[in-house]
């Protein structure tokens, strides 16, 4: 790990001010992703700003009838919150499908959104990776690369990595917005739909956040009811990242929403696919995964996504 100086920010404004103009500065929250990557020298900040003392650890009602989740709310607390369990069950389900009890006790809502890909070559500093070293090439796309866990849609010729978060898939389904603050005191609210960038030819740029801009909260609109479920398919029953995950809200009239994890560089959802929900899983996936470019190793994800949704719809109808 490289050396770094360490400071504590007392509120979000101070954190943004401290980080302003310093490209070596990074915020640290739960630390569960950042420290992991610092040990491997994939992340090399010269300065860490601890944002856990910024007071952003509450879940409050919004005027619009939704919830405002502070960026420092720990994943365990978010999953266990009575209002989340009752009105946004898909979010609780997605959270508890991720990581382990110990990790969820540390991981925060802001840090979870910004966790980096689990592409094995991104983690292996001996291999070429455009996301880690722009222009270096992509070991996954080289012949013989191991692509089974990687993306099938939204990807580019420069990077086919997926975004690994479970929580973000449920938040995307629920039309969450990310609230931020910069050093000049400007705050903005970014729909999660616009928060993540597709890799294109700059896979190192992952979100629309500007340097030094801090996430203060994630807001959820008023509850939408319906049958809510999250189904994660992985290589072992617990404590593993998704091969494919499906988040679903289904209303009594058959309408609803679908979002996918494990297939794209961002939680994957399309309005045209949601509209097909009354017509079944095949119709939804035909729209949702239209334009997919799987490799021979990960083409199974297309079939798996459709079958997973079909099983979930059968269960929803049974209820």
């Amino acid at each position: 790990m490289r050396e770094f100086s360490f400071e504590r920010a007392g509120d979000a404004g101070q954190a943004a001010t401290l980080a302003a103009g310093d490209t070596g500065a990074k915020f640290i929250a739960g630390g569960t992703n950042l420290l992991d990557l610092m040990k491997l020298e994939i992340e090399t900040p010269s300065r860490l700003i601890d944002v856990t003392g910024t007071g952003l650890d509450r879940i409050e009602q919004t005027d619009a009838g939704g919830l405002r989740i502070g960026a420092m709310v720990r994943n365990t607390d978010l999953a266990a919150d009575d209002r989340i369990r009752r009105d946004y069950g898909v979010l609780t389900r997605a959270l508890v499908a991720g990581a382990s009890g110990q990790l969820r006790n540390m991981a925060t809502s802001g840090g979870n959104l910004l966790q980096r890909t689990r592409c094995p070559y991104f983690y292996d500093t001996n291999m070429a990776c455009n996301k880690r070293s722009p222009g270096a090439g992509c070991a996954a796309l080289d012949s013989g690369g191991f692509t089974r866990p990687l993306g099938v849609i939204g990807i580019s010729d420069h990077c086919i990595a997926t975004h690994p978060s479970d929580m973000a898939v449920a938040m995307r389904l629920l039309d969450a917005q990310v609230e931020t603050l910069d050093a000049a005191g400007n705050s903005r609210s970014i729909p999660l739909e616009e928060f993540y960038l597709l890799p294109g030819d700059t896979p190192e740029r992952e979100t629309v956040l500007e340097p030094g801009e801090i996430i203060t909260a994630v807001t959820l609109p008023a509850p939408i009811g319906g049958h809510q479920a999250y189904h994660k398919v992985r290589d072992r029953a617990s404590y593993a990242f998704a091969l494919v995950s499906v988040a679903l809200v289904r209303q009594a009239d058959g309408s609803g929403r679908v979002a996918l994890g494990g297939v794209a560089p961002q939680p994957w959802r399309r309005a045209a696919a949601d509209a097909e929900l009354p017509n079944g899983a095949g119709a939804v996936m035909a729209r949702l995964l239209d334009g997919a470019r799987p490799t021979a190793q990960n083409a199974f994800k297309i079939t798996l996504a459709e079958r997973t949704l079909a099983a979930m719809l059968a269960e929803a109808e049974g209820n």
Binding site: G30, L35, D36, L48, N105
Partner: peptide, 13 residues
């Protein structure tokens, strides 16, 4: 009062 992985948190925090 909560279990955590002590390898993924800094002592200074």
């Amino acid at each position: 009062g909560r279990r955590v992985n002590s390898c993924l948190t800094l002592a200074v925090m």
